[in-house]
Design a protein around this nucleic acid. Structure first.
Lengths: 334, 334
DNA sequence: GTGAAAGCGCTAACAG
DNA sequence: CTGTTAGCGCTTTCAC
């Protein structure tokens, strides 16, 4: 059995209160301080955070709930959040709900029963109903990647429509009008927005929308790969492709290479998030990049502010912009 | 403030013990059961797991500590572990130590102060010193991916030497003797083993080892990419490449495609772990696969057994074998 | 600055 | 089956 604070009182002859005060950074006579520190060393004492959590009604942990852990975006965001939180002595309980709405609701219950001090989440569900209990208990919540229409929450998002506009406009400015898009399907919030941005910029430039240039599917390498092969063999094939997420970009590159098609000569492309590819592929890739670390940092810091009450106002909405990484993968059409 | 068990006693007129018994699955008179269930519904009561944890001296959470969260292997293993544990009512506190030994030690302290019931970890450190406190407190530990020489722990590993032997022997059986390897560097446990397996099978077949066929580096796409380019331009270039990890395989494929080199005609390759690639690349890829879900399941189940004391003996060592996925990426030399 | 005592929400004997 | 009671390990008044 691990040593308790009581063992320290016995060893030092001091009282519970004094030792506790020391542990919480209070003032103690130098001689007593020495006694306590010695005892702690001797006994290998470490605070029992469970007991402390009960006494203080706060656990110094935040729950992070996402749709899928084995995914680059989520993995990297979580790793960074965890990092920052830890530096402020907060632990992180990670749950992944596998894109399942029922599980998502259960996981929130689970996190609440663990009495997390706050919840950071990339929502799966389309409405915020599943967060009711957390709201009632006044557990701070920070949303990442999306918001809800039905209620305001703190959130950290990027403007996905604008990201697409950036990408597509870049292509248009280089003379392209036959532009394909490979994207997720309509029940994905970010996919919907990105597709909307694609439509928006085509319309703004009076370019007719070709429905067979739009390849909806899953957000996977497979979809990127197959959709690219299809788009490259379609009659009246597009001159440029907008690859609207990390995995899709990867799949597309593999398909293009495999077909022996060259970019930018035969096809122009602009990718998404795939820094790894943009760094190593030759010719280099034009890429839309989400500020993943900034997203993580904003979410973590916003949460920290809610936790230490330095932010108490209305729901704050952090809007980050995507960046545009220039490359050589887009051909200038005359 | 959330409702407590005491609120339920007031509402039902029953005692603490009865309600507690109900909550823990004990027998209660039907009428009382109804009363309690009604009160729970009414009050939106949920067990405070922190209080329960203190009373029971067990928290129903296990800590998972790994070197790097934004990595396919770790991400996918953790996602699966979390899944299984959750189904048994265990939560998961995830920490990533960024491959830093000092952080690793701190994280263990952190997990212990949170009183996790068990720890599952992919070790970073070369010795088990940092686990001392956990051992003393008799917190069950399950290692993944590697073991220590200095002390026996429960562990779930694959035979990395054998994996390499499988890969290299496959190449040799198809008539290759000029075989390159791209791998991690010597301070990576698994990389060392995989390289050792490479040497082993060459020696077993009396094939002379060419040191410039061995490309050590980081376990990254970049390394796979650049090393491949180097190996393909070296004089007396190898006829086959063994790509000894996921990221390296990905980088190599990109490099090969980019160079306009064809496999298996111009170069034979066998990859590692990259199921995604082996599924979508044409010609299909020969691939060594680690049973990631099985690794996760074994680790989680072993932990569960330790936790419920159904396994109490000596350290158990689960040895899983890698599989060989056949493909078309290896040319038969006459 | 220190100590005594009550309490955080729950569990677990032990009687009844 | 139910109720009483005494903790689990720590924090936090409130006197001294």
């Amino acid at each position: 059995m691990a040593a308790t604070i009581r063992d320290i009182t016995k060893m030092t002859g001091l009282s519970l209160a004094t030792v506790s005060k020391y542990l919480n950074g209070g003032n103690v006579l130098p001689q007593n301080r020495a006694l306590i520190e010695n005892a702690i060393e001797e006994l290998q004492y470490e605070v029992n955070e469970v007991a402390r959590g009960l006494a203080k009604n706060c656990t110094k942990t935040v729950g992070v709930l996402i749709h899928n852990l084995d995914n680059i975006f989520a993995g990297s965001v979580i790793a960074n959040i965890e990092d920052i939180l830890r530096q402020h002595d907060y632990g992180t309980i990670v749950c992944d709900c596998r894109g399942d709405i029922e599980l998502e609701e259960q996981e929130i219950k689970f996190l609440l029963s663990k009495r997390v001090d706050g919840i950071i989440t990339i929502p799966t569900s389309g409405n915020s109903f599943y967060l009711n209990n957390a709201v009632i208990r006044e557990v701070p919540i920070v949303l990442i990647d999306r918001t809800f229409e039905d209620r305001n929450f703190d959130c950290v998002i990027v403007d996905n429509i604008e990201a697409s506009v950036q990408a597509v406009t870049t292509l248009i400015n280089k003379g392209h009008s036959k532009i394909g898009i490979i994207c997720g399907d309509d029940n994905e919030y970010t996919a919907r927005k990105r597709l909307a941005g694609y439509y928006k910029s085509l319309e703004a430039n009076n370019i007719k929308i070709e429905l067979n240039y739009v390849k909806r599917g899953s957000l996977t390498v497979e979809h990127g790969y197959h959709a690219t092969k299809e788009l490259l063999t379609v009659s009246n094939r597009p001159t440029a492709l907008y690859l609207s997420n990390y995995e899709i970009t990867l799949g597309a590159i593999i398909a293009i290479n495999e077909l022996g098609v060259n970019f930018p000569e035969d096809i122009s492309i602009i990718g998404f998030d795939n820094l790894m590819l943009s760094k190593i592929v030759k010719p280099t890739l034009w890429t839309i990049v989400q500020p993943m670390e900034e997203i993580a940092a904003s979410a973590a810091n916003l949460m920290l502010k809610r936790l230490n009450k330095s932010e108490t106002g209305e729901a704050v909405r952090v809007n980050l912009s995507t960046g545009l990484l220039t490359g050589e993968s887009i051909k200038q059409l005359s």
